[in-house]
Nucleic acid binder design. Structure first.
Length: 859
DNA sequence: GGGTTTC
DNA sequence: GAAACCCAACGCCGG
DNA sequence: CCGGCG
């Protein structure tokens, strides 16, 4: 790991043994675990963790509660048979008071006492001597639950089971804590050693030339660097890593600490972990200058993580984030120490003291340097995926302004991008103004917008590109908005957003393997756009699927953190949801898991709405459009703004089987989807005619469905049919995304009215049920923005657990019974059928104009 | 079903 | 500490 | 203008 010290780098340079791989940790039964230390050294612990006090556990109606006695952990190490550690509050707000511990279980942090049946082990995080430790432990297992007469539940605990297996290491990179910043891995002795060196520093600074003078951290003018684009080596200069974070001044005076950004903003409350570490530093007063970062699972600074961190307001969020996304301050300068102003001292002397003041682990880190070979160091830093390096004059004083004695060198990166559009030229520019670029995202299965490049072209290239692109125009952007946190899809791809408020003409083009270009750029912005892009060349030898975003510039693919594992924890599998049949929640989940492949085309890229039945089909239920906050990060969401009310809804978008299983586990029995997909929300894929019999005989539904089919056949428009699952049929007409909602609705209305005229005895478009006179209601109103269709393969909350099932037209005949297609039968049917009779509604490209012309001739 | 607010 | 609460929306109809 | 409907 490159942070904190440069041992790994130095070793590599001198061709010594390669560092041990980070992230490896072995665990054995009985609570033995290994904690890594930074810089490729590992320290082995034998910890036995015991609870002092009793774990009370679960209270009515749900949600854990903690017995106030449980305040301390007993930690046994080899040298120290028993050390007690106080808990630090690090749990979500809720029914369990302040001060508890959280554990790692089934891929997420949960309060320790959360009664996960059968839980045998987990990961544990606690603080000892101001350092956060974590490890895998085996503590106790659940023996069962008991319900008392007043309805409260109690969780019975057993002593640790000697045979209990330790939990698997989780590979979930998202929730994985960065390996270094929170782990100390230090023995108590080592921690004390770190403190002993303070006396040395104190005496040294007292004897130095540093004047006795207070430095006010609030008004301290900061040293700033000048930029350069070429790394260099100079005698007397030193080279540090450049961290991708915010500049931060950290100060302690007496008992109080103070953290500020470059421009002075007080952020003491935002980084409690830094404040704590600073408070515990065994010095009377100190002022540090550095860069605050939040590391990703691979130990690299993640600007995006830091940004989300910096947006937090509520104390609970901050406290939680300080554990889950802990900040690390890489301090590169010591400005003041116990009443001495160190700014007149040479940089190397300041850093020498700094190195000895800061502990070798924890959230406050010394930003080390090397003293030569700046070019090679820069290359290495870039290869490690870091932002760049800093070059500093080792003899320079801290002058508190922008200075040529500090130089920043930023990494440049190159990448291949699909061309998805262009803007028109301004002024004397020929051909085009800029190219719109996109990268392929395998998780999404499509292109994601990456920003624009407007420089680096020669006139010939401009002209050629403009000509080739003009021939491939399309109306809608062929790509998605870049980030879930960023602007909504539509807004992100709108002119206003792209051009920072200016409106210009955009042309979107059909992407192609031959429209790929290589671009040099500085970095990715948090919103997933390119910063400082320069066009290098066209390359026609690269399929767009290979235009993937590489966050590591060159040669780091092998060590990229694994993509977040999509794990779903199933709860209450055996809860009965359909009492008549005895079908359980587990059956529901199994069903959706089994048919997910067939269902996916109707879910992919479509905003999803759920009807949830947490207590089964006879319990209370509710609609839910907004995805709950607690949904895992890997679950795709999209924020859409209602054009009418301006209100935002953040919909789920089910892109894969795990998402479907997650949603099913929320007891979402019915899944409703939009008829249109994200990249063209204004153009539906199908027109829906909902045949709702109410009191009418089902035979009439069949007759009407067949009449619609005949009518569509006459106008040369295909039609498809599925059961609604409850009592009627859904007839779907393919639109191929070629018309608007209004046109779709008009088409539906026209067809419905024609059918009503044909079959006035059995069909009606009257919305009021009482006035339908026992006729079948043909509902065409569900064609509109935000209007929903019960998704094909959605289960219904009715006896027999019927499923909205795609049918072949030959099956639409007397004798058809909707309940025959249910949670039990549909998976088998799917296997037998091999093809989905409804799929054509998504794939066919009808000639709508011709169909409408024929239809108008009929009326 | 899970999180938040009120009592 | 436990119970209550929240979880959509919009046009259209007749009264 | 309101409540019910889907």
């Amino acid at each position: 790991m490159p942070h904190g010290n440069l041992d790994a780098y130095r070793r590599k340079r001198s061709s010594e043994a390669t560092p041990e791989p980070m992230g490896s940790r072995t665990t054995a039964a009985g609570g033995r675990f290994v904690v890594q230390k930074h810089a490729a050294r590992r320290v082995h612990f034998d910890l036995r963790l015991e609870l002092e006090g009793t774990l009370k556990s679960w209270a009515v109606p749900r949600g854990p509660s903690l017995d106030p006695d449980v305040k301390r952990l007993a930690v046994a190490t080899e040298d120290h048979p028993l050390e007690y550690a106080d808990f630090e509050g690090s749990i979500p707000a809720g029914n369990y008071g302040a001060g508890a511990m959280i554990v790692w279980d089934s891929g997420r942090w949960v309060p320790l006492e959360d009664p996960v049946a059968g839980m045998e082990s987990g990961k544990l995080l606690f603080e000892l001597h101001g350092y956060k430790l974590r490890g895998v432990w085996t503590l106790f297992r659940t023996a069962g639950r008991r319900r008392s007469s007043d309805g409260s539940q109690w969780l019975l605990m057993k002593k640790p089971d000697a045979a209990a297996r330790p939990s698997e290491e989780s590979g979930d990179a998202e929730d994985e804590l960065p390996p270094e910043s929170v782990l100390s891995g230090l023995t108590v002795e080592e921690l004390r050693d770190g403190c002993d060196r303070i006396e040395e520093v104190r005496a040294g600074i007292e004897a130095s030339d540093a004047p006795r003078r207070r430095v006010d951290p609030r008004s301290l003018p900061l040293m700033l660097a000048t930029a350069s684009d070429r790394p260099f080596s100079r005698a007397g200069w030193i080279y540090e890593l450049k961290y991708d974070g915010y500049r931060l001044v950290a100060a302690k005076e007496g008992g109080s600490v103070f953290l500020r950004y470059r421009r002075g903003g007080d952020v003491t409350a935002l980084y409690p972990e830094l404040a704590r570490a600073l408070r515990r530093l065994p010095v009377e007063s100190i002022v540090l200058d550095g860069e605050v970062t939040v590391l990703d699972g691979g130990g690299r600074p993640s600007f995006a993580r830091l940004q989300t961190r910096a947006l937090l307001n509520r104390p609970v969020d901050i406290e939680q984030a300080s554990v889950r996304r802990p900040a690390t301050l890489f301090a590169f300068d010591l400005v003041s120490f116990e009443g001495h102003d160190l700014r007149p001292l040479p940089l190397l002397e300041r850093k020498g003291w700094l190195a000895r003041v800061l502990p070798p682990a924890g959230p406050l880190r010394y930003s080390d340097h090397i003293e030569e070979r700046g070019e090679e160091f820069f290359e290495q830093a870039v290869a490690m995926g870091l932002e760049g390096t800093m070059a500093k004059d080792g003899a320079s004083r801290y002058t508190g302004r922008r200075s040529s004695s500090w130089v920043k060198l930023r990494a440049e990166r190159t990448g291949d991008f699909a061309i998805v559009g262009m803007s028109s030229p301004k002024g004397s520019r020929v051909g085009l103004g800029s190219l719109h670029l996109a990268v392929w995202d395998a998780a999404v299965g499509g292109l994601v917008y990456a920003g624009r490049v407007g420089t680096g072209f020669d006139d010939a290239t401009l002209a050629e590109l403009a000509e080739r692109l003009s021939a491939r125009r399309r109306k809608e952007p062929p790509c998605w908005a870049p980030s879930a946190e960023g602007p909504a899809v539509e807004a992100a791809l709108s002119d206003a957003h792209l051009l920072g408020g200016r409106v210009a003409d955009q042309t979107w083009v059909e992407p192609d393997d031959e429209l790929v270009c290589e671009v040099r750029f500085k970095e990715w912005t948090p919103h997933g756009l390119l910063r400082h892009p320069v066009f290098l060349r066209l390359r026609d030898d690269k399929p767009i699927e290979d235009c993937v975003r590489r966050d590591e510039p060159r040669g780091r693919e092998a060590t990229l953190p694994a993509p977040p594992e999509r794990r779903v924890e199933i709860t209450n599998k055996s809860k009965v949801f359909w009492p008549d049949e005895g079908y359980t929640k587990g059956d529901l989940i199994d069903f959706y898991a089994a048919i997910s492949e067939a269902m996916q085309p109707y879910l992919t890229d479509r905003p999803l709405v759920m009807t949830r039945y947490p207590d089964g089909i006879e319990g209370k239920s509710f609609f839910q459009k907004n995805a709950p906050d607690f949904a895992p990060d890997w679950l795709h969401k999209v924020r859409l703004t209602s054009p009418r009310t301006g209100k935002d809804i953040e919909y789920f978008v089910c892109q894969n089987r795990e998402s479907l299983v997650y949603v099913a586990n929320l007891a979402a029995i019915v899944l409703h989807v939009w008829s249109s997909r994200l990249h063209q929300l204004g153009q539906p894929d199908w027109c829906i005619l909902d045949l709702d019999p109410k009191d009418a005989p089902f035979e009439d539904v069949i007759e009407i469905a067949l009449a619609i089919r005949r009518l569509c056949h006459k106008i040369k428009l295909s039609s498809f049919v599925k059961t609604s699952g409850s009592s009627g049929l859904h007839v779907l007409l393919p639109l191929g995304g070629a018309c608007t909602w209004e046109q779709s609705r008009s088409l539906g209305q026209l067809i419905a009215q024609i059918i009503c005229r044909q079959l006035p005895e059995i069909a009606t478009v009257t919305r009021n049920p009482e006035r339908r006179g026992g006729k079948v209601y043909i509902d065409f109103v569900q064609n509109g923005r935000g209007r929903l269709l019960v998704a094909p393969f959605s289960v219904r909350p009715l006896p027999a657990a019927p499923v909205s099932t795609p049918l072949r037209w030959s099956e639409v005949k007397p004798g058809l019974d909707l309940r025959d297609h249910n949670i039990r039968t549909v998976p088998e049917r799917l296997k037998k059928l091999k093809t989905d009779p409804l799929r054509g509604v998504l794939t066919e490209q009808p000639d709508l104009l011709a169909a409408l012309r024929r239809l108008s001739e009929l009326v």
